[in-house]
Nucleic acid binder design. Sequence first.
DNA 1: GCCGTTTTCGGCCCGACTGTTTTCAGTCG
Length: 542
Amino acid sequence: MSTNSELAEILRGIADLLDLQGERFKPAAYRRAAQSIDSLPDDVRQMSARGELRTIPGVGDAIAEKIREYLRDGHIPYYERLSQEVPAGVRELMRLPGVGPKTARRFLTEFGIQGPAELAAAIDAGKLEGAAGFKERKIAQLKQAVAAGTPSGVRTPLKDAWQVAEDLVRALRANAPVEQIVVAGSLRRRRETVGDLDILVTSGSAEAVFNAFSALPGVVEIRLRGPTKETVIVRGGLQVDLRVVEPASFGAALQYFTGSKEHNVAIRTRARDLGLKINEYGVVRGEERVAGVTEEEVYGAIGLRYIPPEIRENLGEIELAEKGTLPALVEPHELHGDLHVHLSPDAGPEEVDRLRQEAVELGWSFLGFVTTHPPGTLAKSALDRIEHWRQVKASGPRVLLGQEASFGAAVGAATAEYTITNLTGVSRPPTGAPTSASRPLFAGHLGVATAASAATVEGLTTWIKWAGKAHIGLEVGPRGAGDGLDSAGVRQTITAGIPIHITAGVTGPADHLRDQLIALGLARRGWATADRTLNRTLPGAA
DNA sequence: GCCGTTTTCGGCCCGACTGTTTTCAGTCG
């Protein structure tokens, strides 16, 4: 874990403990600081060294001092003091659905319950019965929550959540009377991981939509259902919120449920300062409704340009939207190909054709298959098929053959048109430029390869410097840090002036070129612009 | 604890849903 995420974790811990003590505003302050630090495109240690801690949104004198304590001593006395006052299990209680700080506190003070196991025992012994606020239904709910175990807080990787969302949207379109339908939330912001799905629809009949939704085969549990909202759990454990809104409110609702929370708080505060009020139904001045149908309208009403969902994190985007100087993020139509397409070793010619056909449908102008070096890992029939398409002067994408060489290895295949460096297993960059005669276009497998170093912000800094010296790009794929840059890494890379390659991450028959859209989302989240993207032109043609 | 083109003090986004209430607290997002 990087210093940034360790520190954010501790600040969140402080927030939980303050919550339990009944503090009103401090918990939110610590959480805001934690969130800022988590999404910081820079290493907090370096920022501290430069005296820039106070420039982090939500970090004031008190929290800055605690950060410095942590960086210097490895611990924060304030956190340790708070921790001693509350048994460790009580924080776990707070994570049970339906249990917040107030209830967890009551468990401790009224019943001496110090953790989930003790809560289960107390329920079985009937100790909660008769206590104010704990009737049959509440106790049953608690019992179920404890039995299900503390939610691990695990978030679903974007690529997996994307698939679930696509399936749900398709099923709803087919089975429910929906008009507009959009997946909002962190998936729309293209976060690397997604906690739950937020689906927004307009419809003539909310009831019919909910009935159809509840009956979908993937739905395993209905958590709650009201007139405008239903929450379910789908197979695999992902929570899905479905909301039905009026068309006149669709833009406002989309804006609101896309978040992030930090972005929305800043937006609403700005609205209030302008004498307006924003909620999920629209923007109103007094009784008069001034916006709500589209997101553009909502942002326009408070004097801002439209802000792309991927960068709504209150990390400077609002100020730029006000000045009209937001960067133009790279768009899908600006990606004309992918240079990092792998075939599995047993892939035959039909697999080459399938991928080429997908590239045709995507309107791409080039498609780069990559062999590992030495190239013996590909079946000859597949190589022959690639060669066939390379020779054909048909319409459709130009098919290329590249090679992927282990870092530092001599590259030899004369037929390869370009080279990618594979960083698997390389823990840190060498000094100096790449040694191979033919310079690689970009470095792939950065995340897997160098999990120990590149996964941390400070580790990535050294890779970015190396890429700059070597004049090569770095890669972002649909799996984020699992295979390449994550969005914070993209932002750091782009800021340093290093180009990126956006790949679909195809390695076998189950993968699709359209997954490049997922990687594109991560790139946009990292403020990537088209002029820093290697997928715009054929290699060598720039 | 943070923050400020109406403030260095006095605010702090806002609504839905649930379960327990006869008017609301707690939780959640």
